[in-house]
Amino acid sequence: MNSESFDTKAVGPRIRMMMPLLTPLEAKVVDTVFAMRDFSDETSLKQIADDAGVSEAMVVKITKKLGFSGYRDFRTAVSQYNRQPTAEMHQELSVEDTSREIVQKVFRTSINALEETLSILDMVAFDKAADLIHSAKHRDFYGVGGSAQIARDVSHKFLRIGVRASVFDDVHMMLMSAALLTEGDIAIGFSHSGNTTAIIEALQLAKRNGAQTIAVTNYNSSALAQAADVVLCSTAQGSPLMGENAAARIAQLNILDAVFMAVAQRDYESAERNLDRTMSAVKSKRKDRLS
């Protein structure tokens, strides 16, 4: 990534995805930069070093570790990213906020996550994921906590078009499932951090048994991403109160909604036929308003 070839919208997301590779001190320097509201093309290397309490040489080293040619290249990229309209959407919640301000900030954070996730979405990985899900014999989804809810939502969508998937949120059940997967099957691990041990171990076991694996995560450099054949990556800015998970969940649901559509497209007639059947099956359970 350099200032001549980067996608401006993707600068922030790509830097955030590299954060797991940084040491705590290196991450502190990056956080210092993004916390500066007046960071611009005029911000000196010395100012960053002084504010972060590190040497100028360390700042340069960190910018290179993030994929830039040096501090000036990093400064240009981040300055242009900060001038993007979506960058202004992200504002931290405050105890003084009115209800209207709370609603606006929450919505804008989600909109920002969607815009930035779209800017970094790997379309090759997207198509590969759709192909694998469509052609798989068995599809097992792994997730715990909030990630399990995403897995269930995705499984529900696929069932509507006749694409069956099983969801596991228990550590033992995940490993049992992974032990039975073989070639032609697929395992999908959902983890915002990409560091959830239970999901990583299940995906690794499934892969050793010949199954294809997909990771849905916020960090493409995470342990889960490294263990998967295909990575679908969301991105969201963190905040002390909201964290990253809330906005990232919205982004991940949208990625999987798009995957769902792509899978349906691969056999549209069958998807349409199964959708009619499943909708008819539950129609009697709906109390629709009579015309």
Rank of each mutant, 00 (worst) to 15 (best):
C233G: 10
G146R: 06
E26H: 09
D7M: 11
L256G: 09
A281T: 00
Y142D: 03
F168K: 11
V59E: 09
T278S: 04
R289D: 03
V59T: 13
G145F: 05
F141C: 08
A211K: 02
E26Q: 14
H156N: 04
G145C: 10
R83L: 10
Y81W: 05
D229E: 13
I48F: 02
P240T: 01
Q204L: 03
N274L: 09
A246H: 09
Y142I: 01
L66H: 03
L45Q: 09
M17Y: 03
S177H: 12
S284F: 08
R14P: 13
C233H: 09
S3I: 06
D140K: 14
T235L: 07
E56K: 12
R83M: 02
L159T: 05
R139T: 03
T235N: 11
R72H: 10
R208H: 04
V154G: 00
S280N: 12
F190G: 06
L25A: 04
A87C: 11
Y71W: 11
R72A: 06
L232R: 10
T98C: 13
V167N: 03
R266Q: 01
T8M: 13
D41V: 15
P240N: 12
I186E: 01
M261I: 01
T86N: 10
T86F: 08
T43V: 06
K285F: 10
